[in-house]
């Protein structure tokens, strides 16, 4: 069996059984080696032939290329173990043309994948830019609308203007409240409001005939400024309403609890 195996003449099932046995039997491995010396001698009966001169450098190049990849430690260890001279033959059934085709196809796929990846990255970037631009446009549009409202309100013959002054809590603070007497549409412009403590916000109040009505809750910007649109309850206001701004819990309240920061003078 070993002799025939060395010749490569065993049927696949027999060969498999012999290989299995060789794994476990050093004596048979040594014996197989002697038989292989005999069968290998058959190579001498063939006329030697010279491969093309380029083959030598082709081999060295591919060896260099393969060395560039790190060897897997486990593989090396396994290769170095007991049956070292039992050579495992890898089947490589690809012709040169097939291999070239395979490499070309692989390269094409890699190139496509890279291009797609770059395109996706670019698309994401463009989308973000678009979103940023859209946000900027919306913010500008909002600003423009607000300014138009402010202009209309300020130039309307129906508009009434109330000045708000800082209280002792904020002596520097000032405010203007403009409102349309017919529609109740109002805008509050406030300046120099002190920064708001956490959990707090400013709230606008309308005071008329002894009644105190809650208005909007708002936050000033970093410079203590605020501009808010408001709807004044014109029907509930007498001819001399008073406006106030207090510091309240950030959700706002129905009945003022906090200190007044801005107050329009009552006549």
């Amino acid at each position: 069996m070993l002799a025939a195996h060395a010749l490569g003449a065993l049927d696949s099932e027999e060969a498999r059984r012999v290989e299995e046995h060789l794994e476990a039997c050093a004596e048979c491995r040594a014996e197989l080696e002697v038989w292989r010396d005999t069968t290998s001698a058959l190579a001498y009966t063939v006329a030697p032939a010279e491969p093309s001169p380029q083959l030598r450098s082709r081999i060295l190049e591919s060896v260099r290329a393969s060395s560039a990849q790190p060897k897997i430690a486990g593989e090396t260890k396994k290769a170095a173990s007991s049956s070292s001279n039992v050579i495992a033959f890898q089947r490589s059934n690809l012709s040169r043309a097939q291999r070239f085709g395979a490499i070309a196809a692989t390269l094409a796929v890699i190139t496509l994948a890279a291009a797609l990846f770059i395109a996706l990255l670019r698309l994401r970037e463009v989308r973000r830019e678009l979103a940023r631009n859209q946000a900027a446009v919306e913010s500008l549009a909002k600003q423009v609308a607000q300014e138009r409202e402010a202009r209309e309100l300020l130039t309307s013959p129906q508009s009434q203007n109330a000045q708000l002054n800082g209280t002792n809590m904020a002596p520097e603070a000032r405010g203007q409240l403009v409102f349309d007497q017919r529609t109740g549409h109002a805008m509050l412009f406030a300046y120099n409001l002190p920064p708001v403590p956490a959990g707090k916000a400013y709230q606008l109040w309308f005071i008329s005939g002894g009644k105190v009505m809650p208005g909007k809750v708002f936050m000033p910007d970093r410079d203590g400024r605020a501009m808010i649109n408001e709807q004044v309850p014109v029907n509930n206001l007498d001819s001399k309403p008073v406006f106030a701004v207090t510091l309240e819990p950030s959700g706002g309240v129905q009945v003022a609890t906090g200190e007044k920061y801005l107050l329009s003078p009552s006549s």
Binding site: R36, S40, T76, S84, N85, I87
Partner: peptide
């Protein structure tokens, strides 16, 4: 690295392979 000179001839190894 798996070829063991003590146990086999390089010629045999190469030709078999």
């Amino acid at each position: 690295s798996s070829f063991d000179e003590a146990r086999g001839r390089p010629f045999t190894w190469l030709v078999t392979m």
